[in-house]
Write a protein that binds this DNA or RNA. Structure first.
Lengths: 245, 245
DNA sequence: CGCCATTTGTGAAAGCGTTCACGAGCTCTT
DNA sequence: AAGAGCTCGTGAACGCTTTCACAAATGGCG
């Protein structure tokens, strides 16, 4: 029952051809945002040090990350903003505007639909769906909420590749199954449930309560430390410089 | 400018006394949720295997994680649900209901205020704040939106330790500074900016656009693999079995 | 009571990710 | 043209995380 499937060949393939480490992939969007801001400011070149400062990481990390994509920097000068930006966008696949379906138009679904960051970063909301018939037809962020019955048709016709689940936890798995069955191969899950998906489908989970609990842990650590010894609190501060998810 | 502050003593302290690894801390909330569900179902004991299935991790991880808190399991039997649940809650510091301040009551702020998961997991919303005077006084999730001027007073009188930033990126740093100056030592940042904070303050960042971009990367990887060679796609599928954040 | 099935707890090993340190290469100045 | 100064790219070292494998401990059963 241990599911120790061939973990061997995995790395062989990953490192072998075009193998970019997960940790690097998670930081590429950060660099991309900084580059966008720089481009808007008219800056044409940027050093790894500056890029690092903007993204909240170390310059060594920036250089190593970018070296994974190839050599797009110039020694003694830095990176060309436009060129690098384009390169990262291409690697992330955000040049082709991907279609996204949002399921569940409650509080969170509303927020997601109205969130400008999605469209600004190369994503297009192909549809909003809700199981509640009373909510269907409602206008949210300029789009009409559709019934769940339309899901399959929209996913297919709009070639939706990413599904966002913003439903209550109880409905999440069922919704996920329908998304996957319709052809969605990536899921962003806001419900506090672990989703079971077939191989080949990616799931990322965002749980707000978890984030708060992690912060809470460090809070209690800080108060404890304060009552015991000062250097602990100090050392802790250093640790928490990185604010990655 | 490199900020290579004493990274030495850090681990010395972390491992030394009550040093729980970050990776473990990030999973404790997952276990806690599963335990809550089990308790609601009337289950009294649980094995590492079951707990692992519920949390979407491996059983080895569960055992190693829980062993960090001490020995709360019984060999041959498993863990006692109530006992373990209490132990984790205590370690995370969610037994004492922490006060949270939410700044920025736009789309996202609304969603956060109305999100039941916060109060259900031991957090209390001490106040909603917005810079827009037109929005102040408005009722959101049964609470009145307060002007930013009230921030310091509320943080102090309600002993708010966690601040949630749901403002536009432009205002985030300024809001963060005010929160920290008022005494907040943990920040959950939804704005797509890197926040500068003094030592001793924790920041966690949640960026929805980043999550989508990471998924987009894997999508392009999948399509590329499909067009190039089959085994790559297969290996990738194995990789993505884990759906952790 | 002794054995067997079960499951925890944990060293040891392997895998990743980060940091360090420095050579390589570019630009500019003299 | 040569040297100085800067910054990228990268192998090597280090530390954290995960995985593996198994001894230790428990409960049940004959």
């Amino acid at each position: 029952m241990q599911a120790s499937v061939p973990v061997h060949r995995l790395r062989a393939e990953r490192q072998g051809l075009r193998g970019i480490p997960e940790a690097t992939v998670a930081r590429l969007p950060l660099y991309l945002r900084v580059l966008s801001d720089l481009a808007d400011s008219g800056v044409t070149t940027v050093s790894s040090e500056e890029l690092a400062a903007g993204a909240g990481v170390t310059s060594a990390k920036v250089r190593k990350d970018l070296s994974q994509l190839g050599s797009y920097g110039t020694r003694g000068v830095g990176y060309e903003v436009d060129c690098l930006s384009e390169e990262i966008s291409r690697e992330l696949g955000v040049t082709q505007h991907r279609a996204v379906a949002i399921v569940g138009v409650g509080n969170l679904g509303h927020a997601l639909a109205g969130y400008g960051g999605f469209t600004a970063r190369g994503f297009r909301i192909a549809g909003l769906f809700d199981a509640d018939p009373g909510r269907c037809g409602e206008l949210v962020a300029g789009m009409r909420v559709r019934p769940m019955d339309d899901l399959e048709q929209v996913v297919a016709s709009e070639t939706v590749s990413i599904g966002v689940i913003a439903t209550p936890a109880g409905a999440a798995q069922q919704v996920c199954d329908r998304l996957v069955a319709s052809g969605v191969t990536s899921v962003l899950n806001f419900a506090s449930t672990v989703l079971a998906v077939p191989a080949g489908v990616d799931v990322r989970k965002v749980d707000l309560a978890v984030e708060l609990q992690i912060l809470s842990f460090h809070e209690t650590r800080k108060s404890r430390a304060a009552g015991v010894s000062a250097p602990v609190a100090e050392a802790h501060a250093v640790l928490t410089g990185r604010a990655v998810s």
